[in-house]
Design a protein around this nucleic acid. Structure first.
Lengths: 343, 343
DNA sequence: CTGAAAGCGCTTACAG
DNA sequence: CTGAAAGCGCTTACAG
């Protein structure tokens, strides 16, 4: 035990009367050490309450045992959306059954995601990375793929998907299904407020929506498609726009509960009835959708499952070199009052 | 550039025609290195796109540059409560203006918090720790205080508070204020659903509640005080209990919005009107409280501010050795329909 | 202002 | 089955 408090491997070795190499081998029990020696060393470790130094081990092994979790660029603010905490919860859950620790990205708005990722990787801070969202033309995805660094993605990559471990819902089908549902209930002018255009999930849902319209023999009307960030303001803005239309849509599909709320508040204030005047369906199935004044039909995307699987996929990437594996997490439509209106 | 990809400090040194020591000094620019040498080295680093290895640096410096964030024991599940994501967001925000990275605890239910903390500390993985909640008889707090390891706490410690950096709301006053408000509106039988008994925040709020009752000349009735975890079920359970009382309370103060919702749902089903039959006030001011069928009076505790300040306090603990500093984050009462009933 | 050397606490071929 | 030695990539007294 040197002057500083920490017990080191050679302190243990000395006490046990063996070499540090032997102690090291006992710790990682990956080599043929005699049982008697093992016991002796273990006993000494116990007695001296020895604990291996993670930094030293990382340095020697060239493995950190740490996974970097990259939250979206607007990082902190995005935690407002319940999707991210829930997905993070899934990642934590996934990680808890492994030996990996989780290093969180702390990017402010100014810093780009990519800078953080490079810092994590080039500073040898992590063995792998989880990207919690995928953008169109995603620089981070491109970089990680190029240097072939182990990572996994929540969402679907726009390209190179055969090289990228990713987990996603079938967002095309979800939007398709919900649009068909509206159409089957006799809706003729079905509007959509999708997410930000730069997110791949937005693309998929818009595609599913369009396909369903087509198959329902409904004309796609660009004036009925809106895009914007997942916050209340988006809902207010487009809610107002919709309220003011001379010929209002009779159905609305919204990509997020919070946005939906914003829109429905506007409707309420304008005397527009849900679902009678306009049927509304949403995504994410948060507490908000259940507890709303008028409970909202919402698609549960199982963010927890997405996060958990993202961690699994990353482990497979790091430890088995697996690339390009795709996992689909089932969604579930929860039908509620907001779509139970006139046929 | 050795066989493996990484450029090291001696690669740079060689190229620049100086010693590794010099390069090291340039990196941490804390020593008197001539300007010309500095420039030369910097140029080489740039050209070789050198990046210092965090593990090696940590090992040599005996500082990791990492902060451990300890989420409550039931870790993942607790993320359901919007308080934790919001506080985490604050921590992230606080950390983003520092050089520190954030290591997340990944304790499953079986592992105890303390085990994780010991792992972080004894494995030399972190320089400091943030505890996101404080329990009565908190083992983690005791341990950290005993070994005098830098940490900060969200909430208030039960004891030793003069040695512990912590940030909290004035929960006594918040509960006191809201109880007085009920009393001033003529309520005579004011009930409370507090959090889990083991949380210090529960104690404080109960104390404030009792004090307000006393000052209002209202008798404290143990049958009107309930405790339990912050989830819907708690709300259902006690909501039912309250509904079934022969002499129902005319006011209810609940420690969390989600719990409040549960209770109000029961009231609705039982034909009990809020606020006419029972006035309801809550804590946390989440989207739920604003969007509720009957908008709910709720105390905003500024979880973001709590998290941010916790990070600041930790930095002061780590870098300046400050202990026992306490910061109070103001709360704000948002009055809404759920308390605007009969006088 | 700069370098040689020792050290941070592990791991891992290599040799026996 | 076990040890001596070199090495992981930095930092930092010490000496000049």
């Amino acid at each position: 035990m040197k002057k500083n408090g920490h017990v080191t491997i050679s302190d243990v070795a000395k006490k046990a009367g063996v070499s540090p190499s032997t102690v090291s081998r006992v710790i990682s029990n990956n080599s043929r050490i005699s049982e008697v020696t093992t016991k002796k060393v273990l006993k000494c470790m116990e007695e001296m309450s020895y604990y291996p130094n993670a930094m030293a081990r990382s340095l020697a092994r060239k493995k950190t045992g740490v996974v970097g979790v990259i939250m979206p660029t607007t990082s902190e603010d995005i935690l407002l959306n319940p999707f991210f905490p829930e997905a993070l919860r899934g990642i934590v859950k996934g990680a808890s059954s492994t030996e990996y620790d989780l290093l969180l990205s702390t990017n402010t708005e100014k810093d780009e995601e990519l800078k953080i990722i490079k810092n994590f990787i080039r500073g040898s801070k992590v063995d792998g990375v989880i990207l919690m969202s995928s953008k169109v033309k995603d620089e981070a995805i491109k970089y990680l793929t190029e240097i072939d660094f182990p990572f996994s993605l929540i969402g679907s990559p726009e390209e190179l998907s055969e090289q990228i471990n990713h987990v996603d819902n079938d967002n095309f089908m979800a939007a398709y299904e919900i649009t068909c549902y509206m159409s089957m209930r006799g809706k003729k002018r079905i509007a959509m407020i999708a997410g930000e255009e730069k997110l791949t999930v937005t693309r998929k849902r818009v595609d599913g929506y369009k396909r369903a319209l087509k198959e329902s023999n409904l004309q796609f009307d660009p004036d009925l498609l809106f895009t914007g960030p997942f916050d209340e303001k988006t809902g207010y803005e487009y809610g107002s726009k919709i309220s003011d239309m001379t010929q209002m849509p009779d159905a609305l599909i919204v990509s997020d509960d919070l946005v939906t709320f914003g829109a429905m508040k506007i409707f309420e204030n304008s005397g527009i009835r849900v679902p009678e005047d306009i049927a509304v369906a949403s995504f994410n199935n948060t507490a908000l959708s259940r507890y709303s004044n008028i409970p909202i039909t919402s698609v549960d995307i199982n963010a927890l499952g997405l996060g958990k699987e993202a961690m699994n996929l990353l482990v497979e990437a790091m430890e088995k070199g697996i690339r390009g594996k795709k996992v689909i997490i089932p969604y579930a439509v929860h039908k509620r009052q907001s779509t139970e209106g006139v046929k």
